[in-house]
């Protein structure tokens, strides 16, 4: 018997939901509040009047749609590339023995320990002669480099969750190693692929530091950098900034809705006796 049951459990869930969703609610609330009321009305749960003017401005008069497109391109590109590479690395780590395997894995962990600020200058010097500063490709490369180690570990642990006997059975059933990978392992890896895609996409989507350092052209900026343009000399335009931020939440939401059915585990249920 659980200590907390029925109604109590629901109360806890609702409280948690309220806690988690409140910032989101506040974001939308400010975006919908007319400028005139933002300070004059004080802190109320909902403004007395609502407006879509901030959204209209962001979409029609600000360069935000461009920022938006850039972010989608960079994030999708990064997520796709990292996931493919991480799948390869994770598979190799999980299924093959090779000299220096442990060392490589430890090295990958170590890369995660450095504060990112440390590498800004060297990275800039590395990318500049290659003509990759101030390009979207440059951003994708940098994001890929930073996300790959963790993504590889994530993939590795998903591969480890798939019994080796499944591939071996497939290879006895007539598959080459590659066919076994595609026909047996890949379908079972969908949750892992979904999780990795989601993780990398979100990380790339909200990245600020390197986008800020590497991108200077207005038409190449990502939305995280673009948000800063609402910080003017005379103050912050909160309404517009929140409207932009609200819009920026939509793609990750859509993305996770699309992959969520793969995020649920249990695809390998029944493969082997537990």
């Amino acid at each position: 018997m659980s200590v907390v049951t029925g109604a109590g459990l629901w109360l806890i869930r609702l409280a948690y939901l309220a806690f988690a969703l409140f910032p989101l609610f506040w974001l939308v609330r400010i975006a919908l509040t007319p400028d005139a009321l933002l300070y004059s009305e004080g802190t109320t749960l909902w403004p007395s009047e609502m407006t879509f003017a901030n959204f209209a401005y962001v979409l029609e008069q600000s360069p935000f749609p461009t920022f938006f497109t850039n972010t989608v391109i960079v994030s999708l590109g990064t997520a796709a590339i990292v996931t493919v590479l991480a799948a390869g690395v994770g598979y190799a780590f999980s299924r093959f023995q090779f000299a220096g395997k442990r060392a490589v894995m430890v090295f990958l962990v170590i890369t995660q320990l450095f504060p990112l600020v440390m590498v800004i200058t060297p990275l800039y010097q590395l990318l500049a002669p290659l003509g990759l500063v101030n390009t979207r490709v440059g951003l994708v490369i940098v994001f890929t480099a930073f996300n790959l180690p963790f993504a590889a570990f994530l993939m590795h642990s998903f591969f480890e969750g798939i019994p080796r006997e499944l591939e071996q059975a497939a290879m006895i059933d007539g598959c080459t190693r590659f066919q076994a990978l595609i026909r047996i392992i890949l379908p079972l890896m969908l949750p892992g692929i979904g999780a990795t895609l989601g993780f990398v996409f979100t990380a790339a989507w909200s990245e600020l530091l390197f986008s800020l350092m590497l991108i200077s052209s207005e038409d190449l900026k990502t939305f995280a950098v673009g948000l800063l343009s609402f910080v003017g000399r005379s103050g912050v335009d909160w309404g517009q900034m929140m409207a932009a931020a609200t819009l920026a939440l939509i793609p990750p939401a859509i993305f996770f809705t699309l992959i969520q059915r793969y995020l649920v585990g249990g695809l390998t249920a029944g493969a082997v006796k537990a």
């Binding site: 006997e165 290879m171 006895i172 059933d173 079972l188 390998t268 249920a269 029944g270 493969a271 006796k273």
Partner: peptide
């Protein structure tokens, strides 16, 4: 020869059934 070329079949201790 790889397993697929040996014309054998195998039953594993944990069965190794394809879950999907």
């Amino acid at each position: 020869l790889p397993p697929r070329a040996r014309n054998i079949s195998m039953v594993f201790q944990n069965y190794a059934l394809y879950p999907h």
